[in-house]
Design a binder for these strands. Sequence first.
DNA 1: CCGGTTTAGCAAACCGGTTTAGGCTAGATT
DNA 2: AATCTAGCCTAAACCGGTTTGCTAAACCGG
Lengths: 358, 358
Amino acid sequence: MEERTPRRPRIADVAREAGVSKTAVSFAFNNPDRLAPETASRIRDVADSLGYRPHPVARMLTQRQTHTIGVLTPQALSVIFSNPFFGAFNEGVALAAEQEGYALHFISPLHGSLAQAMSQATVDGVVAVGLSASHPEVEQIRAAGVPLVMVDSSALPDQPGVEIDDEGGARAAAEHLVMLGHRDILIVSVEPPPPALELEPEGVMGRRLRGYRSGLEAKGVEFDPRAVVVAPASIEGGLVALHRAWGAGLRPTGVLVMSDAMAIGVLRAARELGLRVPEDLSVVGFDDIDVSQHVSPPLTTVHQPIRRKGESAVRILLSVVQRRDRDPEQLRLETRLIVRASTGPAPRRRQEVERVRG
Amino acid sequence: MEERTPRRPRIADVAREAGVSKTAVSFAFNNPDRLAPETASRIRDVADSLGYRPHPVARMLTQRQTHTIGVLTPQALSVIFSNPFFGAFNEGVALAAEQEGYALHFISPLHGSLAQAMSQATVDGVVAVGLSASHPEVEQIRAAGVPLVMVDSSALPDQPGVEIDDEGGARAAAEHLVMLGHRDILIVSVEPPPPALELEPEGVMGRRLRGYRSGLEAKGVEFDPRAVVVAPASIEGGLVALHRAWGAGLRPTGVLVMSDAMAIGVLRAARELGLRVPEDLSVVGFDDIDVSQHVSPPLTTVHQPIRRKGESAVRILLSVVQRRDRDPEQLRLETRLIVRASTGPAPRRRQEVERVRG
DNA sequence: CCGGTTTAGCAAACCGGTTTAGGCTAGATT
DNA sequence: AATCTAGCCTAAACCGGTTTGCTAAACCGG
């Protein structure tokens, strides 16, 4: 007698074994009231003894829902997960999703195509983060007909979304430095990842840049485009950014950095250059990720409610997934400057900085 | 004339519109060689004009695969994502998965039950991390018949898995401190999360504890169980752990911490207590997460190849998902001590520490 | 002109469930 | 006794695709 690889038992096997119809087996699991109690429990016993579990894919197909929400990003997942910003964001997403019993499915470009990855994904709805409204594939994605909430994309009309007041936060950061007496200010911006989108004015970084600029100009400091450097949004990125700026002869007393990860790199570069923070150089980050309060000196930064952003996105998404009748909800969360120890009064005389560098 | 909500077009709609059978439509997408070229392209045109995309769930059902791998953890996802260890691990997982065109699906306890979450998940295989072999649901999970690779669980026979040399790494850390002259050593261990598993001897932390112990004893330092404190595996956790130990009257000159996140908290607590690191207090972490080299002072820690662990787990998983004939592969990765600046010679006289504290 | 091979496309079965619309029986009602 | 109702269960249709035979026509060399 051959030992066959044991097929996974299906509903028909249970039905046959229990001497009932498939319908009865299905009812035993999903709708036991429609069966005599003893029949239902007998069916369940048989199912257990066979090790039967309803096939999740088949269920999805008939019920037309997957109980899964997708998190979509235009970047490779392998660059997302160890980014503390995404960590906190995903934490919020997970919190809201778990509460409602939804699982999480991550969608990233498949063979370079987001739309393709999207059409392969079995989700009830999608939270898109870091996807700019002008992304080439955004139309295809919307055309997939899956409920979609966009995060940090300048809102399309009719498109639910969550964003924050990037511009206001950046303006506060810039004004803070100016009020401390800084005049020579370096701006460190985020370089778009390889599949190089231009630095679009509608993107997050565009908004922050506008905020910096208006903050400077509001206080009478001229905005100098040559004092803007660009690097990858990582600790390393910030590190090389300051070194490069310094090497190019810039001698700022204050730095406005568009992400905390980069700001941490800037802090490190400052130490390497022999600059004391904040005595010689003031640094302001953006995002207020968890570690920012633990680095030394603790980082002055623009706080945004990252976890809440993730939670809200999921809440909004589920409200459209579950009842179709909603208006597209657009949520805007506040930012605020948190002054810690990485900023201080500008050094009196420029020489002071020069001397240290030498 | 009523405006009906437009049904998603199905294969039958395309077939009717193009005047062919469903089979032909299917071929046009998956097996165009079996059709005359002009027929195939006509079908694809019709499909495009209708906005037709094959329904991913239906595909999964017939093809019996989902092109998705699951990442399973016994903890809530909302505690996972902003943990830098998981961040790096997931990065490795994502890297290997993306290379093979697999998406990622995260599975965490559903209504408290991992097995239930598991049976709902549509994945081709699962990487389980932080799931101890003695977890109450591990049998049900294995019984689901889904290929499974366990990470950091003491290997079950017949069960593919990836682990690291926790014990060896911990021993090296302990010996390092002893060689620097430390005799009063505090051990900070990880408290199991709420659904409180005991601190099992087979768990990761059990292995590390054994390593510390054997490292101490090998160098003739007695292991004192009262010098082991327990706290959550977070920066906060480490912070309160040292404060609590200090408050209880312990006066270690060296601390062995079972995770870098906690070690960073310990560093901070030391600063709050007025202790200089490493002059007054030496601190050794475990894991070597990315930030550890950026905190100040840079953290001496036991390195483990976290990303590679994730990658390897997925590689092994896919090798069994794709061809069933493999032996269960068990991989063990090395750890090594990385000495940075948070450890140094023990202070000469105990008084030195006492004085500082005062 | 004939048997044999391609080629192009189709009908039907299948994946593994859920759901609709009844059917049958037994007890209650008229 | 005939009709109604309630309770329990089922056959068949359905979700939306893929795959397996099979057939009819075109092609081919002899």
